[in-house]
Amino acid sequence: MRSLFLLLLCLCCQCFSSLAQNNILKGTGSVSFAANGPLNLIKATSPSAGGFIDTRTGKIRFEAASASFQFAISLMQERFNDKYMQSSRHPRATFVGELVGVTLPLQEITQEVMAKGILTIHGIPQKRTIKGTLTRHGDALQLVADFAVNLQDHAIEAPKLTSGVAAENINVLVDMLLQPASKPVAQRQVTLHARRSPK
């Protein structure tokens, strides 16, 4: 009788675990950024970034390892890690928050969304509201978000471009495909492209 009870308990736990996993959509991929300036020279790409959305609560989290960003110019990569980001002290950039004003599953194929949360870069958290879109692809969601990062907000020294002008703003575009966590997730691309910094 005791063995039967333990077996039923294990089955129930597995069932609840499966239901919880079904609420989670996960994605992995790459992330890149660039600082717009006269020559648009400050560019980097990280092959490792990840995120998830809880479709039941609307909670989201995205992150990328600071030291994983790779530059075409090795000297810039060294300065990025040692001088600007201090990657050994601040190993990750993260956004943690939740979707607001949207009900999941989506009522339309593509829908504008807004996320409120905390963006932490260089160890400095900032409250942010980031707008974007979610698009349904079967049981997966594609997230696209365009936003700017002010380096001063995160106590990052603005790197000087060849013109001598400091790159104070980094504009990024995030594109990530998130799939049910209960399924094997192939590596996906997350691309952050620089946009013209607002004047």
Rank of each mutant, 00 (worst) to 15 (best):
F62R: 00
C13G: 10
P47F: 03
M85K: 02
R188M: 10
V190G: 03
T110R: 14
S197F: 10
Q70F: 00
V185D: 01
L161A: 15
F52G: 00
A64R: 00
S46M: 07
F33H: 02
A72L: 07
I170C: 01
P91D: 05
I130C: 06
G101P: 03
R196Y: 08
H90F: 15
R128K: 15
S182I: 09
H193E: 14
G101R: 07
A115I: 09
S182F: 06
F62M: 08
K183D: 08
H90W: 12
I121A: 03
P184E: 04
K43R: 15
C10Q: 08
V174F: 10
T57S: 13
L39Q: 14
N23E: 09
S68R: 02
A44S: 09
K160L: 13
V174A: 12
R79F: 01
A194I: 06
L41Q: 15
L143Q: 02
D153V: 02
L119K: 05
K43H: 10
V102E: 00
S68I: 03
M176R: 06
F5Y: 07
S68N: 06
D54S: 07
Q111K: 12
F69Y: 10
C10I: 14
R92V: 11
G123H: 10
C10N: 06
I124M: 10
C12T: 10
L19R: 13
T162G: 04
S68E: 04
I124G: 02
G123D: 11
D146P: 01
P180I: 09
V113A: 04
A93N: 04
V190W: 00
V190F: 05
K127T: 11
L143H: 00
A158D: 13
E78A: 08
V185W: 00
E98Q: 14
E108M: 08
F33W: 08
T120Q: 08
E168K: 11
I73G: 05
I109R: 14
K83H: 08
K43L: 11
S17N: 12
S87N: 02
A72Q: 11
F80I: 05
F16Q: 12
E157A: 14
L119V: 09
Q111P: 07
E168Y: 02
D175N: 15
F5N: 05
S163M: 09
S74T: 11
F147W: 12
S18L: 15
R196L: 13
P125H: 06
E157T: 15
L25P: 01
Q77L: 03
S32P: 01
L8T: 13
